[in-house]
Design a protein around this nucleic acid. Sequence first.
DNA 1: TTTGCATATCGAGATATATCGATATAAGTT
DNA 2: AACTTATATCGATATATCTCGATATGCAAA
Lengths: 101, 101
Amino acid sequence: MTQNDLDSIIKALSNPARRDILAWLKSPEIEFPEQCSNYEHGVCVGQIFEKAGLSQSTVSSHLANLQRAGLVSSKRQGQWVYYQRNEECIAEFADYLKQTL
Amino acid sequence: MTQNDLDSIIKALSNPARRDILAWLKSPEIEFPEQCSNYEHGVCVGQIFEKAGLSQSTVSSHLANLQRAGLVSSKRQGQWVYYQRNEECIAEFADYLKQTL
DNA sequence: TTTGCATATCGAGATATATCGATATAAGTT
DNA sequence: AACTTATATCGATATATCTCGATATGCAAA
């Protein structure tokens, strides 16, 4: 974990909307019951948008931010783009912080 | 740990200068060998200021920020104010994050 | 009480972040 | 091809953060 990785992750987490999104993605079935498709690759942007109470562009921007930090990954399926947590990165970050903070 | 606590802690940690200071305070004897007094209550502002490469007022502001977040505590001894890590708060935060992130 | 040192606070300017609406892109539908 | 839906990008504005120098405050020494 480089200082740059750490920096982008902490900055990503420093925004409450992004923390909310990351938390919601822990339980997609519970947090996004409206979604028609399965949760194999996570939750699509529209679902998150509806729940977030922010504009579509803002939500998209937050998701891009989380992805740049490595905290989530995305997969396009037709018109939709699904986002899911990158548990490996998240765990590594939490461990690193517990170790070094 | 309330959402407010979490928010102020993460925001405090989102700045690299503040992360540096917090890291330095882990090993005062090594990082601040210049300090004349003992490290009982931590390190005084002037020492941190000299190491940080930032203005005195900026360093003071960063320390106040860390303290508001609960990550450090301060004790005045005569003219000097000593800052030290609040290990309890730091550990609680790291655990909370590992649990809930 | 005046002077000097250590730290905190204030006000201003610069940079970063959050947010939105408008629009572009990508894919599916008719 | 034209139209609709889903998402991303762009440009603008508002707010927050970082940083500084100047100054205030707290304390100690002369």
